[in-house]
Design a protein around this nucleic acid. Sequence first.
DNA 1: AGCACGCCGACT
DNA 2: GTCGGCGTGCTC
Length: 737
Amino acid sequence: MVGDSKKSGGMTTGQVVPVLVPLPVPGPYSYAVPEGMDVTPGAIVQVPVGPRQVPGLVWDADDTAGAVDPVKLRPITQAFDCPPIDATMRRFIDWVAAWTLTPPGLVARMVLRVPAAFDPEPRVPALQPMLETKPERLTPARRRVFELIEDNPGAWTKSGLAHAAGVSTSVIDGLVKAGTFKPVMLPPPAVVPDPDTGRKRPELSGDQAEAAETLRHAVGTDCYSATLIDGVTGSGKTEVYFEAVAAALDKGKQALILLPEIALTATFLERFHDRFGARPAEWHSDMAPKMREKVWRQVAEGRVRVVAGARSALFLPFRDLGLIVIDEEHDQAYKQDERVFYNARDMAVVRAHLGDLPIVLASATPSIESRVNAEAGRYGAVRLASRFGEAAMPDLRTIDMRKHPPARGGFLSPVLLEAVGRAIERGEQALLFLNRRGYAPLTLCRVCGHRFQCPNCSAWLVEHRFRQQMQCHHCGHAEKVPEACPQCGTLDHLAACGPGVERLVEEVVQHFPDARTVMLSSDMPGGAKRLRLELDAIAKGEADIVIGTQLVAKGHHFPKMTVVGVVDADIGLTNGDPRAAERTFQLLHQVTGRAGRTGEASHGLIQTYQPEHPVMAALVSGDRERFYEREIGERQRAGLPPFGRLAALIISGEDKAETEKYARSLRAAAPRSDDIDVLGPAEAPLALIRGRYRYRLLIHGDRKSDIQAYIRSVLSAGPKARGSLRVQVDVDPQSFL
DNA sequence: AGCACGCCGACT
DNA sequence: GTCGGCGTGCTC
């Protein structure tokens, strides 16, 4: 096929290839291959699109593709000197595109996101010792250089050599002139050193060793398998899957560890370093462009052996991937809900299947769908039942707020305050968890009863006292905090109702004025980098009391944290999300699991008005099995699959009453809000024809309130919203493999 | 996704 | 009289 020229009408036409371009068009475009250029599917090229040049991916020839008007045909501008995107990755791009109803070019764009990496990294100048040629005059400085290179006869950089030998660079220059060194150009240094799999084999307990063996075996078979490691916090999941990573590396393969962005901390990287003597390459959103470029290139070349990354790392062009690990498998952060809507956990399973390689899903609180897959035998299952070493499970108790109410104007029960006080007296740390940003979730006027509401979504506006703003957490609307009530004009009679983390700080400082109190919230200035620094500082003991939203729940280990208080455990249980119990259980389990890694006596205190609720009962008793059984059972009783897909179809611009009626029926029929897709009028029929959806419904968002807000906004926006409708697909990977 | 073209409101 | 809003359409 390559190099094939067709005769047509006596004219010789050059080779034409399909190329995926980063445009929302349904398929690849055709380009002419210039004389002398050699491109095969997977090659990364530069092509003209209208007035600009864009990166493109040479696609597999498809006989069904219609011929393009030869007049339109333009030549490929350039073929990069870059490893091609392999066939598995190309099928993966197609797969993700079809599944998420995204144009394939936009999925390809996620793979080709680092244009600077398409050209080879420049080689670096170095000096190769020529040991046989000794200079005539051997000065003391020259002798030091010789002693060094006799032990290390490889090539050196000039400054590296001068530094290591303790001489100035002019000594080296002299030796170069004398012929002792030959200047050479070397490949640039690896972005991370190679991991050493034999470096420190961990001592594993019985069930850990068994689990590690299971995973090693899976890696050894060299074919697709999915294994769920279900192990409580501190049970050594990480150590166990590190053994799978080691096994993949020993086979000469690369490994990918996916983590929720927030869990990519120095702590994790250090644990990896302890085991392998080197850090993994990182991949996440706030990397320096230069580093991003190097990592991408070296992953493609196979020089980087292990990547630890956030969800987008799934689209790195590994040369020879041998294992994928998804830590915190249940985490919502794996869902991307912009541009290309995908769940990295699910797409990772697809990637593993297409590449015929093993995947490991790990969580202390697996998602229902993964549990069901494990129980049905579609996933292998590994249980790690107990904490490792002396580390005890934290002692969890509920605080019945009806019996131990907070002081007037406060939100912390005396029982919790006392526990916090004792912890800091002992020089330990306490964490107060409240999953609510801002100062207060509702503000009202004490004179006229006016409540501050979002003009777009009708949700309550949340006061952010620190920023002096009233914010809508649904749509991002923000306004200044007014001095007077906008309805009746009365000054100074606005009342904040309910607690947010900012308000908790006030209460804590009042009770513990001398403690070092830190508040962490996702809207903190400074972004992810600052956050990582703060979390690492806390882990080192540089705070006494930490007040945080759910970002403190994820993947951090605070060895001195011996008291964890959940301030309002009932948040989220009543928001109408059919997954509310599962979510709350996962969140509270993760939060309370922050305590007690060191084996100190540690306590989790859960403030609730419903201590008898199954979520609280499961947390306190530690009986996770019963909880999962109950959740799965509930769904079965409701006649629903434990997971599944729904499509929602909103046709904006139709008769409003009709659309509303439709939306109502959809909403009523939607059992699980987060498995619902929003399809634009263009895509939806196609998806429905393909039989991709169980129900002809749709909605968008993770919570009922989001969905309602979304439907309202679509309805009120009318035809304008047509083009903005997006697809969200949340699927169980097993349903299509 | 960009970027151009194209048709209706407030300004130097 | 123009600058500028974003609706529509096109890119091999």
